[in-house]
Design a protein around this nucleic acid. Sequence first.
DNA 1: TCAATATAATTAGTATACTAATTATATTGT
DNA 2: ACAATATAATTAGTATACTAATTATATTGA
Lengths: 148, 148
Amino acid sequence: MNLGYLLSKATRLCKQDLNLRLSELDLTVAQYIILRDIFMYESQPELEKHVNPACIAARLNCDRPTVTGIIQRLLDHGWILKKDNLHDKRSFYLELTNKTREILPKLDELDEMTLSKAVSSLEEHEVDQLKKFLRQIIKNLHKGEEHE
Amino acid sequence: MNLGYLLSKATRLCKQDLNLRLSELDLTVAQYIILRDIFMYESQPELEKHVNPACIAARLNCDRPTVTGIIQRLLDHGWILKKDNLHDKRSFYLELTNKTREILPKLDELDEMTLSKAVSSLEEHEVDQLKKFLRQIIKNLHKGEEHE
DNA sequence: TCAATATAATTAGTATACTAATTATATTGT
DNA sequence: ACAATATAATTAGTATACTAATTATATTGA
């Protein structure tokens, strides 16, 4: 079987498994990942500054319109709050609500459950190898960005 | 970095790279994969029977509405043809057009270019290991299908 | 036989991922 | 200072991936 096909199928199954677990809380994987990223900012005192949508898109390596949509749904359902950025009227900051901060450890547990199910038949050193290979693929495809 | 995140990023980069190459021909990765699957059927004489949408969805492990949409776009652009199934009026068979059969080897080359770029820094045995790990993840996540 | 059930494709509706274009605001260079 | 340029978010539009419901046709079982 083709590597591309295996990659895409494994990824799809991981997402499906975690989405199923998160659906009880009316969340999706993409939404959880953004909540996690905002939390990361909040809990790293040296970062100091608050996080804005462009920042999230850059860190998660996805495009800004996608982030706009996910943020909108998170705002609609009260998972996050919008705060004015007094230094740049084009933008705004994002914060988790208290409810979200409380529930986040439970979300991390669900994520952990999916991942440990996924690698349940692998040794720890095999998981490390797998991650090393994936990081190399990411580096190889980033480099150049344009081909030929 | 979390395994789920690495998987999803590597998959996304592979898709982006191949989509860029295929865009010259006005095709997407998902469309190419379905063309490949139809060809596989056509070229395996022992399969005999023609392929229908349900068959494609089952082999590629994706849902039927997605296949319906992709097939519609492939029909619209003359990549495939619809043939009546005389034994089941609910369904129909799919065939590649001659133009598509001619161009398919070129599409395979583009796919090969993306994959070899992706694993350019890996040894051959490392790629084999990677594929083995991915197959195990797929098996682990399939089993049970429901958790707990 | 024929009602119950199953299956094939489709439709409707949602979320994500992307590109291109737009709007508003900041920054730069002269 | 201010025109040119860059940046932040958004809008519009497309494709994919999914769930639930619908329609048409097949298959099953009493």
